[in-house]
Amino acid sequence: MENIEKQLREAAGKLLSEKKVDALVGYEKGTLPYQTAPCVITEPGEADKLVWNSFCSVNLAKYVHDIIFQHRESQKRVKPEDRKKKVVGIVARGCTTRSIILHLQEKQYERDEVVIIGVPCAGYVSNKKLNLAAKGKEIVECSFDGDTLAAVTQAGSMSIPLKEVLSDSCLSCRYNNPIISDMMIGNPAPPMNPGSEYVNVDEFENLSDEDRWKYFSKEMAKCIRCYACRNTCPSCYCKVCFVEQSQPKWVGVSIDESDTQVFQIMRIFHQVGRCVDCGSCIEVCPMGVDLRKFLKKLDKDGVNLFEHRAGESLDSPPPLSAHSTYDKEEFIFEP
């Protein structure tokens, strides 16, 4: 891991000093023992603060999108002939590159506006699972020891097998190595267990309508409408989200059951063939809403109906953005 970090810092410093990128998005050490923080660096000297470990959780592709779009906004005041592109570097694991592919397919930015430093990924620690493993106690010290996590809480120290606290998205990850990159760091990571990808969905599908709705309602009742899920999601990049539109107003602002459900259902449905299962929305949710079950169901439908997985290849556009005469249509005529 240290070796990857060293190479990562060298590569990032080089990109910045050679002015191949104007800014670079990565992770830095956090102020809490079990977190890293996303960071944006612009000077070669800052490259030394980059880290790479299993606490690097949120998908950074959203930052690339935001930085480029903010830059374009500011370029509006510049004469067309003087306008410049802003090139953003990014530390990207498999799922991050899937998001970049999706951005490129959806024409959000050009390939030459992003420089991808690919890193192999062995999965990241889910805060929710870590909290459960620590029985709700605050973790005051935490370090990796091979495949285990040595944690100290106010109740004492404990050793947690890493596998037990890795995010569900990581455990069944199909693409833990970058799909596209401009440079690769480290050796390819060993495969995870994609065979178990839809286990939870299969179970959920077998429940009765009432039970499924009950579960959905229970999960949505936890939501406080902070929008952390939407804001971290690389696929949620609408300039103005429907939630914030008022003419017409699609959804009320309150946490009335129906308002929250409408917000979440509509966000989830906008992810058909677009969710890369990076798990960021689940990871950032302060209330622990189980969004993955519903997103994975759509993902499974995408695979079964269109043989498509979001961002798996630049040549395979999202099913709702493409048309084929062989597209399945039974679900329309015989739902």
Binding site: P38, C39, I224, C226, Y227, A228, P286
Partner: peptide, 13 residues
């Protein structure tokens, strides 16, 4: 602010 998601977690909690 560079890494801020602009979510409301801090203010709502």
């Amino acid at each position: 602010h560079a890494s801020c998601l602009a979510c409301g977690t801090c203010t709502y909690l």
